[in-house]
Structures are given as C-alpha cells and as structure tokens.
Design a protein around this nucleic acid. Structure first.
Lengths: 340, 340
DNA sequence: GTATTTTGCGCAAACGTTTGAGTGTTGAAA
DNA sequence: TTTCAACACTCAAACGTTTGCGCAAAATAC
C-alpha cells in the first residue's frame, strides 16, 4: 500500500523546494527548462495527482454541487439527476446527492451539512413537508451566505433564486384540450392536494381549459388525493362512483390506478374511457395499454438547472445579481390509452 | 451577504487566540469556565459551523463515500442508492453519486476524480464495458492506495475487496423450481449475453434446476439478448417461434415484453403461459397482470455495502485485512403472472 | 516568604496546495 | 571594476482546523 504522492515528497525526492515543484507542474516560466522537465517526468512516472481537498481549501471552492431531492426511487427525479450529472461532469464538477425523503428536518440537515464547505451551490426540489410548513429559513440562510441555489420542479415564490420548472398549467391544458378534441364530455381529474404546487398548477390548467371551452365544471369529477399510500382505493372509489368518458391524472401512478379501476368496472381503455397521465416514465411506456402522457423532460430540467448554477458559480461577483426562471416545455406523447 | 464565520473571526472579535476558541468549543478543560461560556455563546449566536474542507484536510478523511453506478434511471440502482444513503447518513457520511453510463472510460475518470481526496472509499457496480474489457487496473490502483472499495451486484473475482451480491443462482432456481411445481413442462429462458455476470448466473440457475429435475434442456428455448435496444422484437420473435408454457426472464423488461408477445400471439397469461421476472420494480408491481418476480432487495444491498465500507473505514489499521462477501437473499414474490 | 502545583491561555506546526515577494548567482552593459 | 537586469529558485503566508507544548500568573503547600 503506497500512500498518495504529494508535492512535498516529490520535492524531497528531487531535492528542490515544494514551490518549485508546484510551479514546474503548472508550467511556470520561473522554473528552468531542465528542472521543469525532470519534475514533470517524475510526477508523470509516479502518477501524481493534486489533492482535491487541499485545492478546495486554498481556492475556497470545491467544484462540487449538491443536489437534494425528496426521493430517489422515482423515475422523474432520476432523470433530473442524470441531466445534472451530465453537464456537471462536462464542466468539471462532481455531484453530491442527498435525499430529504420529503422530510423538512432532513432537508435542513442535509443543507447544513453540505453548506459548510462541502459544495459550492445547490440544486434542489422542496420536500413536501417543507412546502406544508412554508418554512424556508434554511434556504434563505444558505443564499445569504452567498451560495447559489437553483430550485426545480417543486418551487416556491418566497425563495429568491434561479428556478427550473415546467409549464405545468400549459401541459395540463394540452392534455385536457386533447381529450376535448377527441370528443370527451365528462373529464375526470385525479390530482393531489393543493399544497403540492404541481398538483395545484395542473389542476388550474384543467380548470382553465374547461372554462375556455365553455364546459361546465363539475366539482364531483375532481379528486384530490391526500394520502399517497391509499391512492389506489381512493381512485377506485372515485371511478366507481362517477361516470366519466376521460380521465386526466397528474402522474403515472394515478393514471394506471384509474385504468385498473376502469377495467375492473367492466369498461375499456381507450374505447370507453380515455386516460392521460403526466410524467413520462417506464410505466407509461410499457404499460398495456401504453399511456398517453404529458412528458416532463426531467433530463432537460436537470441540465438546465446545472447550467444555471454553474453559470452563477463562475460569474464574476461584480456582475449584477439577477434571478432567472427557465421553463422547460412539455409535450403530449400520444400512445394507446386515448382514442385516436 | 455575510461570509461564513471562522474561528479566526471569533478569536479577533473576542480578543483571544484561535486555539482558545477551538478548545473552548470542544469543551477542553484547558479553558476557563468563563471564557468557555462566552465563546460558546458567541458561536451559538452567530451560528458558527466548522468548515468541512478544513477538517477533511486536517483529519485526512472526508466523511463522504463515493458510489459509482452504471446508470441511475434504473429502479434497482436507485433502491441501492437509497439504502446506501440511509446508513451513510446515520453514520455521519455524505454520498457522492457518479454515473459511469456503462462506459469504461467514464468509470476510470470518475474513480480518479474522487480518489484524489474527495472520498474515503467507494461503493460501485461495474460498467458493462469494464466487464467486457476485463480491465480492472483503475480499481486495483485505488485499493493499493489504501482506499476501501465495496463492489455490489456486478462483481468480479479478480478484484479483492468486500462484495455484496444476491444469490443469483439460487434466486433463479427458486423461480424455475416454482414453475416446474406449477406443472410447467417447457420453460423458456430470456437472458442476457454471458459477460453480464448476473445473466450468466441466472442462466446457470435455470440449467441446474432443470438438470436436478431431469428435464431435458432444449437450447432453442434459451434466448440470450445481445442488443438491449432491440430486445422487444427479439423476444417477440422468440415467443412466436417457440411453444412454451412458462417463461423465466432475467429482468422486468424482458418479462413484460414476453407477456406482450404472448398476448399478441393470442395466448393468455397466466392461463396458457406463466411468466416470472427478476428484480422487483414498479413495473412488476403495477403491470397488468402484476408480475411474479424474484425480488432483489436493492435497498438491503445498499445498506449492507455501506455498512461494510464504513466498517473498513473506521477500523484501526492494525486489525488484519480480510474481505467479506455478503449474499443478500432473494425471495419469490407471487403475483398474477403465474398460475396458482 | 519561597517552592511547587495548578490554571488559563497562546504559540506553532501540521494537513497539501498556490503564489507574491525575496535571494543569490550569472552574464552583460556601462 | 561596478551596476543592474535576468534567471532560477526558495521563503513564507494563506486557506480553516486541531493539538502538544510552553509559559506566565495565580493558587496552594511548606
């Protein structure tokens, strides 16, 4: 077991000073041709690599970015990570992933842990609990210290920072408009409670389109799931009780539970009832019937978020501060759960 | 924007030395009651937090572990990450996630990047390309430097380190045995090419059980997928050409492609043909019919891997070196894709 | 009143880098 | 011969910690 090579060891070995070694390796003109060559050869031979930690301390930057997500076992978030990772790596950054598990306390803990020098900035999506509490002091504290933060997907106006979101309202409108065009008259909505911002926005899209098309809004056709663990039976009840000819669900799972319920009721998808989901994951693609969905382009969101963050990190401090919000477009992917 | 508080600033502010501040905050008995209280009060008031980077440099350990996986948009790997993260956090460690995207070069790059001080150890699953090349010098180099490595899932004998695997052979045997007990006579196998170790092992399990039960092995009932992107049509061809009354697939996707093909052939699952998959993901749970699968317990694997790694990290160097291989048990989850 | 211990604190080195300032040698211009 | 620039290199500080050691002053012992 050979411990890592350091400048000091090279210096001792070659009988020069540490600074000579450092400068030689960085091709400084201060160092003579011969010495420089000798040092570089030695370093190459023994595969010298500068210690990242020492560099971080010296430069006051770590070249790593932290990403905190509510849960990782979730298709959308993994695509986002994938996008972040890709551009981060391209730009020479590492990615630390932390999970809040939708817990406020864990979000705070993670943030504090990483804010003490471990990362240069954050990309995060708020925990459900955080949005309920509406307590964002941990984030403002971090931004006050001058660490840039980029929020994505689950964002909130109270926090001043760059943001990456999708056009939830427009996405929902596209979906519902599509259903109307295919002749649907009674469109059910399966959404989440309103403090989940995406649920709220997608619900708004649903309502707007109906209004624009002069379709009367029937509150009984709107289901807001409170308890995710119980969503399957809630959706079954909802489908059993109501006559609908189309369903718009705000995520994949709700969509397939709806399909199940519809099939168990003895109806056919898409012949009797069309179903559209949101977020284009594995399930949507591979389910039978495959799901028509509003695709959310997580990878693109991650990439955008990373770009925004790195931009802030590498910008000179003189340049004036301003926050951008990037809206990533959604689009409807037509598959087999809707009528042609 | 207030920059982070350091010991030096506290010292200047309170007119004591830096070491006094450090010692006071660590409750050293060297420091007088009064000064200690004063310093702690000040630190608390201004929310002092020691700088992780400086600590890392001093202690020569970072309290972060690196995990390198072939792809993240993959249910199994996310559950592993989740497991790692959980126990890592409990033990005060951070997790850096890197993706090799199944590329040898990227795996090497990631490893080099993190090995220069960024992490104390690694948890990783080999990239497909790495297994093909059979080139593991990057890993031996890292272990030679004294950094512990834990391999999981895609492991290889040539690398000497702790490992976490599942009993692939036994898992496959359980599945095939189950099919035999339910009366299957002609069991098709949908596997991967042999350099993917898990494909090889699961295939071995399939063969062993058949031999043990004196069932003649029909090579034409074995499909080895080469090109993942083309797997759907390959599987369809396979199903169309062969008469089988059961299919054992080495992953979820192959299983549902098999089901699709069987249904399109006009047969029913599970009435005419039973299907069993491997890896218990979203798809298995929610597909219709839901899939009977061999469950792989990714979370448990991740947790075990993290425990092994942290154990090594916190063990005194005197203690003798030895490598363990933890085998995480699989079990069969009976659902609706197999006959009762 | 002197000798010894205890108390309370500061100094400085170390972790591995980078970098501006300083130093000694050489060679050429004056 | 003196002067001075160019060259090739070293010193030392800095990033933010921790910690063994040293050292005064105060407290105790005799």
């Amino acid at each position: 077991m050979k411990p890592k090579l350091t400048l000091k060891q090279i210096a001792r070995e070659l009988d020069v000073s540490i600074s000579t070694v450092s400068k030689a390796l960085r091709d400084s003109s201060e160092i003579g041709e011969e010495t420089r060559k000798k040092i570089k050869a030695f370093a190459k031979l023994y595969n010298y690599r500068p210690n990242n930690i020492a560099l971080s301390l010296k430069n006051r930057k770590t070249k790593t970015i932290g990403i905190i997500i509510p849960e990782i076992v979730h298709y959308f978030f993994t695509t986002v990570i994938s996008g972040v990772e890709q551009v981060a790596n391209e730009m020479g950054y590492n990615v630390i992933v932390c999970l809040s598990n939708n817990s406020f306390d864990k979000e705070v803990l993670n943030l504090e842990m990483l804010a003490n020098g471990s990362t240069d900035g954050f990309i995060l999506s708020l925990a459900k609990e955080t949005m309920q509490k509406e307590d964002y002091h941990h984030l403002t504290e971090v931004t006050n210290q001058g660490m840039p933060v980029v929020l994505f997907d689950r964002v909130v106006d109270e926090i001043h920072c760059d943001k990456v979101i999708i056009d939830d309202v427009i996405g929902a409108k596209k979906a519902v408009q599509y259903l109307l065009e295919k002749g649907a008259k009674k469109i059910g909505l399966v959404s989440t409670v309103d403090y989940v911002s995406v649920g709220k926005l997608r619900t708004r899209g649903y309502l707007e389109v109906l209004r624009e098309n002069n379709v009367e809004i029937d509150e009984s056709l709107i289901l807001k799931i409170e308890d995710m663990d119980n969503s399957e039976t809630e959706i079954k009840d909802f489908i059993d009780k109501n006559e609908v000819d189309a369903v718009f669900a705000v995520n994949e799972h709700f969509a397939i539970y709806a399909i199940k319920a519809i099939q168990e009721k003895g109806l056919k998808v898409p012949e009797d009832v069309s179903v559209i989901g949101f977020t284009d994951g594995e399930l949507s693609k591979r389910f039978i019937p495959s799901l028509t969905t509003v695709s959310q382009h997580g990878e693109r969101m991650g990439a955008e978020a990373a770009r925004l963050l790195i931009d802030k990190l590498e910008r000179k401090p003189e340049e004036e501060e301003s926050y951008r919000t990037v809206i990533v477009e959604t689009n409807l992917i037509e598959r087999n759960s809707t009528k042609l």
